[in-house]
């Protein structure tokens, strides 16, 4: 049996808009977001669920989109970094806090950091510094700029 050409139709809501496409079952969610939907804010880092650059929200919880098949997100709601700000462009408290604390150097890890920490702050609105550092375990900043990232998360918490 050849699996060549077996496509499946999926409908994924990305940032409030439905995208219906025929895709290969093996397509990863991160490639669907970047190459089918065309949103490039979600980065591909390690593709082994280590670095966290591809973190998005699926049905409101942070996941690493390199380790989810796009077909598994069929019918689900995905939020990417592009979908966080309100329609008039007003950024979230955490995004502003990243800006104010200068919590980025090269910026490659930033979308994943913000998506992971938005989800974390929903689960724990007033974390300790140690809790923030532990929660950042799955997001690597290869500029090693963690201190300002931790400051930004703490300053966005209540």
């Amino acid at each position: 049996m050849s699996l060549e050409g077996i496509l499946m139709q999926v409908t994924v809501m990305v940032n409030g808009q439905n995208f219906t496409n025929d895709i290969e079952p093996r397509m990863l969610l991160v490639h669907f977001i970047r190459d089918v939907v065309g949103l490039k804010g979600t980065n591909v880092g390690c593709e082994t669920s280590s670095c966290g650059a591809c973190t998005v929200h699926v049905d409101g919880k942070s996941v690493k989109s390199c380790t989810v098949l796009a077909v598994q997100a069929d019918g689900m709601s995905v939020t990417t970094i592009e979908g966080l700000a309100s329609l008039d462009g007003e950024m979230t408290a955490l995004q502003k806090s990243f800006q104010n604390c200068h919590a980025l150097q090269c910026g490659f890890c930033t979308p994943g950091m913000i998506m992971a920490m938005e989800s974390f702050l929903l689960e724990n609105a007033s974390p300790s510094e140690a809790e923030v550092r532990h929660a950042l375990e799955g997001n690597l900043c290869r500029c090693t700029g963690y201190h300002n990232i931790v400051k930004a998360v703490l300053s966005a918490s209540t």
Binding site: S49, G52, V58, V63, K64, T67, A116, S119, A135, G138
Partner: peptide
């Protein structure tokens, strides 16, 4: 195990 995003899934 992994990190919070991994444990969600």
């Amino acid at each position: 195990v992994g990190d919070p995003s991994v444990r969600h899934r």
